[in-house]
């Protein structure tokens, strides 16, 4: 057991003080106890040993407690989890008496936590503040088109405004989603069965698949399970299938299979030959392949979900064959 200089000093001080008090008390009480010189010192020594043992045991327990507390603190910093119920994480961790570094660290975490909460509020406000005016514009346009007096060319203008307004809404919703994932909004985890999610999602896209005459092949026999947030699992699979469907070619194919040697899913689809590097494509608002409706956030969302869920994501493309792999 190692004692810091500070703690050792405190222990010696307590020992000397208590011995002095004890000696004084015994001295005062001598007429009643009728102690001889030897037994007087023996008693003092016995008390001294008992006290020392008690203090050392206390110190040991205390150190262990501080160590666990500090360990938890470090873990929390690593996880980046600042969603604690307490207004200040530092108050929960009682290790102020170890070193100055810990005090500094605590302050730093406090500042990060304040920044985090500030940013979270900001994002919530921005999303709210934007959604309300968008709702009003959308509503007014819906009222406007009911008018009998509108000409064909006016309808065209309104239609163009509506299309852009929709895009604005989608960009806003996607950015809000990305920041929510960033700020650990989706924490609850459960065992997710991916087979059901895949089937459900393919159903959702049946019209696209039918019109583009895509050939779908799903080679997953046993169920694939992984422990992660349910909402994120749905968003992940939807975005993966959506990418494979909308960036496909007419009469193309889409193949979903389980990884042979690991727990994971691979989606292979035909698509355009593209030249951008895969790193580039993961960046926000990067749209390749001339698909006009894309807002360029799908891959960012996929990559962000994999990052926070502990899933390994790889994406390769070669001469029009695109392969996205997620490995649990």
């Amino acid at each position: 057991m190692k004692l810091s200089k500070y703690n050792l000093g405190v222990i010696i001080l307590i020992l000397i003080a208590s011995q002095a008090i004890l000696a004084f008390l015994l001295f005062l009480g001598q007429p009643y106890f009728q102690l001889q010189g030897n037994s007087f010192f023996a008693l003092l020594l016995l008390f001294f040993i008992l006290e020392l043992a008690a203090l050392l045991i206390y110190e040991k327990i205390n150190t262990a407690r501080i160590k666990t507390s500090f360990g938890r603190f470090i873990k929390q910093i690593k996880l980046g989890n600042y969603e604690s119920e307490e207004s200040h994480i530092i108050q929960k961790y009682d290790f102020v008496n170890i070193t100055d570094i810990q005090i500094e660290l605590s302050e730093l975490v406090g500042r990060i936590q304040a920044d985090y909460n500030e940013q979270k509020r900001y994002i919530e406000n921005v999303s709210h503040e934007l959604m309300t005016p968008i709702a009003i514009i959308r509503g007014k346009l819906e009222l406007l088109i009911q008018s009998e007096k509108i000409t064909k060319s006016d309808f065209k203008l309104i239609s163009q405004i509506m299309t852009k307004l929709d895009r604005l809404t989608r960009v806003n919703q996607s950015l809000v989603l990305l920041s929510k994932i960033d700020y650990n909004h989706y924490q609850d985890k459960a065992t997710i069965s991916f087979n059901d999610i895949l089937d459900e999602t393919l159903n959702l896209f049946e019209d696209q698949i039918r019109i583009d005459e895509l050939v779908i092949r799903k080679d997953i026999k046993e169920d694939l399970r992984f422990n992660m947030n349910e909402n994120l699992a749905y968003i992940l699979i939807k975005n993966m299938i959506k990418n494979a469907v909308i960036h496909n070619i007419e009469k193309g194919y889409l193949r979903i299979k389980k990884l042979e040697d690991a727990n994971g899913i691979q989606i292979i689809n035909s698509g355009a030959v593209i030249h951008a590097s895969t790193d580039q494509l993961f960046k926000r608002f990067q749209v390749e392949g001339g698909y006009q409706d894309s807002i360029g956030l799908g891959l960012s969302i996929i990559s962000k979900i994999c990052e926070v869920s502990g899933i390994k994501l790889t994406y390769t493309h070669h001469e029009g064959v695109h392969t996205v792999t997620i490995q649990f």
């Binding site: 819906e142 088109i145 509506m162 929709d166 959702l204 696209q208 019109i211 006009q292 409706d293």
Partner: peptide
């Protein structure tokens, strides 16, 4: 007058955001 966007969202949800859904 119902917009194509509103019909599309009603039937397919807000996830299918593709101009092609108007063809559907």
């Amino acid at each position: 007058v119902l917009t194509k966007q509103s019909i599309s969202e009603h039937i397919w949800g807000d996830f299918i955001d593709r101009t092609d859904s108007y063809d559907f």
